[in-house]
């Protein structure tokens, strides 16, 4: 706010503070004090966009799910096929997420704390699952473990069923959700540098203690965020899983696949019931993240503040 014009502006701002909730933020900093029209336009666009593209679909899912009544909603849930798909989804996530967490931390550690040849190549490789279409990701595993694939005959000789079974689904999910944790951690750890680790070493801490007491606390929020994203994708992945699953009802269908099958069978409310469950899992994930941020807010600020 320019000093000469201050009295006038202050009067104006006092009036606007009362009628718009965003006024204090805008008014206290003249540099971002846009005209009212622009402000409302921006806020309006954001709200409309959010409403149309996020809120509306979400509402649609729950309305459709409950369209045939609450009874039908719950009976759709306890349908054996639905239950089996829930189990498989949870199992897949329970294996894929920890695997990718360990891998992500290891990869981020290697990339940010050491210098070695081929580092750039490794970073590119980690990004590969993001750039490859999930369908291709699924097909890759068919090529490797399918009945005519490289390892398929060997696997079937040893009684291992990979493709069109849970192992294949888990492999495809691991592949697709591979980069989430590493991608979240690499920039964070690069920004943090190695000074704190070096300090810990000079103070006598061994490698594992250094990781546990120094590195992990510094990255835990980024790690948690990566794990949540990884989990959300692991539960929701459709394309790659669809290719390797074989769609055997009650056996190799994950929740997203179950939704599709039910929908194709014209069982709309059952399809949306399972879909609503997926949406709820997403809510739980987001809620968990918000809760942790709220609960450990001051620590979070302390770590980020430096």
């Amino acid at each position: 706010m320019n000093p000469p014009a201050a009295p006038l502006n202050e009067k104006e701002s006092a009036a606007t503070v009362a009628d718009t909730p965003f006024a204090p933020l805008v008014q206290t900093n003249a540099a971002i004090g846009e005209p009212r029209l622009v402000r409302w336009l921006l806020i309006g666009i954001t709200l409309v966009f959010l409403g149309v593209f996020l809120l509306l679909p979400l509402v649609a899912v729950f309305t459709q799910a409950l369209a045939s009544g609450v009874g039908a909603y719950f009976s759709a849930m306890i349908d054996p096929d639905a239950l089996s798909s829930i189990r498989l989804t949870l199992l897949t996530a329970a294996i894929a997420v920890p695997l990718n967490t360990v891998f992500g931390v290891a990869a981020a550690w290697a990339i940010t704390k050491f210098t070695f040849r081929g580092k750039g190549f490794l970073i590119t490789l980690i990004d590969l699952p993001f750039s490859v279409s999930p369908v291709i990701a699924g097909l890759v595993f068919i090529l490797i473990f399918g009945s005519r694939g490289w390892l398929g005959p060997w696997a079937s000789e040893h009684g291992l069923k990979i493709i069109f079974a849970a192992p294949g689904i888990i492999l495809a999910t691991v592949f697709v959700t591979f980069p989430f944790v590493a991608r979240e951690l690499i920039p964070l750890m690069q920004a943090q540098g190695t000074d704190e680790e070096h300090a810990a070493l000079t103070l006598g801490a061994r490698g594992w203690s250094t990781f546990w007491h120094v590195t992990l606390p510094n990255i835990r929020w980024g790690l948690l965020y990566g794990v949540l994203l990884c989990n959300a994708r692991a539960m929701g992945e459709f394309g790659a899983v669809s290719v390797v699953s074989g769609h055997v009802r009650g056996q190799t269908n994950t929740m997203p696949l179950q939704v599709e099958i039910l929908y194709n069978d014209y069982q709309f409310s059952a399809a949306f019931a399972v879909a609503s469950l997926l949406a709820l899992l997403a809510f739980v994930t987001l809620g968990l993240k918000s809760f942790l941020e709220w609960r450990h807010g001051s620590e979070l600020a302390a770590v980020r503040g430096h």
């Binding site: 000074d195 704190e196 070096h198 300090a199 007491h213 510094n218 302390a302 503040g305």
Partner: peptide, 15 residues
């Protein structure tokens, strides 16, 4: 080696 090292930007453990 048991050396006391003080880093330029202190490298204190923030948490």
């Amino acid at each position: 080696r048991r050396v006391g090292f003080v880093f330029q930007h202190y490298a204190l453990f923030k948490h």
